[in-house]
Design a protein around this nucleic acid. Structure first.
Lengths: 247, 247
DNA sequence: TACCGAGAGATTGCATACAATGCGCTCCCG
DNA sequence: CGGGAGCGCATTGTATGCAATCTCTCGGTA
């Protein structure tokens, strides 16, 4: 950790992800300096990185603003995810080795076990989402393209900006789990077409779900014109829970 | 243009694209300061942006290095381009309006006219590549997804790092031109499947060509270990020719 | 001769000071 | 009373200085 820059980056990013900074709210450098305990130089660098990753928008001489997401943006996002994750699944099916398939199957079994356990729903969801994230990442990695992997990492993270991770119903999770089972089978058989099809459906289903349960806490208003009526909420020094991808 | 940062960014980026900075060569901040005529702060910011766009790699306390591309990287790159440009073409076919199709056809006609003209081969290639870039970008835009558009913009730019734009044979260009004709027809008919198929083939053909004509001037050696034996070439204050995407 | 370590120079990382720009307010004029 | 120009404050953009870190060289030892 190059101390200052990374501290600032992580702090701001987590603030956006947790909703501490409302969408479309302006991020003033001095504010972030106080918040992160570093000087403006690393804060600015962190903002630059966040802008490159589409978390914020910076306008010349007007600083940074948390990016808002329209319904169309969301649709585009999941469209691309379906395409790229499907592609990754197909590539993975062609080259994955049995050992890795075994690990994936274990992962799915673990998810199954969690669902069947007696933990609270929130606890179940938590663990499930963590395992789910690992499952998807393993498939990206198996596809054997660094570029694809990093691209998907970014896309999935962006999908997380629009909602917290705990809006899942058990029905939705069970549906996901069926997809996961199918995926492992397809991968085990080296069936690229099947794997791609299942993965695409898996992501499309996620989009439908997100839409139905309206994960967007923010108005889909204009980009740069709004005069920041929504001031950032107070910083709650709570948990830094690891958020994972949609199931 | 926020003067300093953009000047530095453009200068360094063009230097990389033109091969003024050899792949894997180290970019020292003081050097760039002298070159760009701005102080280290904007230079560092520019390097950050270039790193986010995969032009350079920055290692902690070790500065920036021009990124090198392995054959596998190139294959991945064109794989993704085929997938995403194909997707863009399919989306475009579904929603494009006749007016836009007409403009595309005019563009293709213009390319045809250039090829049939009496200009020198180099001149022909130049104009053709410019028109070709406009053609592709128009299709991305017609697809109606900002995210897809910017993603493709980046991917195509990265493909340009590995070679200069003038290694094209007339054979290759004529083949491209046939693809372009087919594309316009497919788009005009609203035939998404056809458009996607043609576009995929179009990009795959580009990969095969780039491979055959070995566009990579750099060794595909390791990333961080090399001790930068290749010092940056002297700056030739030559043309700033607009480089366009592969045909 | 090969290897290891210490020190000096070179280079990056961070903080702060200063300059430039934009925004909102007030005050004056119609 | 409404509108516009000018001014002052808030915020961002750039430059520079100092501290931290790395690399490269030189000397010593097995």
């Amino acid at each position: 950790m190059s101390r200052a820059v990374d501290r600032a980056y992580e702090r701001i990013r987590s603030g956006i992800l947790k909703g501490e900074f409302a969408p479309a709210s302006r991020l003033k450098e001095e504010e972030l300096v106080r918040l992160c305990g570093v000087s403006r130089t690393p804060v600015r660098e962190a903002l630059g990185r966040l802008a490159a990753e589409d978390y914020v928008i910076v306008a010349r001489n007007q600083g940074a603003q948390v990016k808002t997401w329209s319904d169309a943006d969301m649709a585009d996002l999941f469209d691309l995810r379906a395409l790229l994750e499907g592609h990754a699944a197909a590539r993975a099916a062609a080259v994955i080795d049995p050992e890795e398939v075994r690990r994936l199957r274990e992962n799915v079994d673990a998810m199954e076990a969690v669902l069947a356990s007696f933990a609270s729903d929130e606890e179940k969801t938590d663990t499930f989402l963590r395992l789910n994230g690992e499952f998807h990442e393993a498939i990206w990695k198996a596809a054997g393209s660094e570029r694809l992997e990093s691209l998907l990492g970014r896309l999935v993270e962006q999908a997380l900006v629009v909602r917290t991770a705990h809006q899942y119903t058990m029905d939705r999770i069970v549906q996901s789990q069926r997809h996961h089972r199918d995926l492992v089978t397809a991968l085990g058989n080296g069936d690229a077409l099947w794997a791609e099809a299942v993965m695409r459906g898996h992501i499309r289903a996620a989009l439908v779900f997100v839409r139905q349960h309206g994960g967007r806490p923010a108005p889909a208003g204009g980009r740069t014109s709004s005069h920041d009526p929504a001031s950032p909420r107070e910083h709650s020094p709570l948990d830094e829970k690891c958020i994972q991808s949609d199931p």
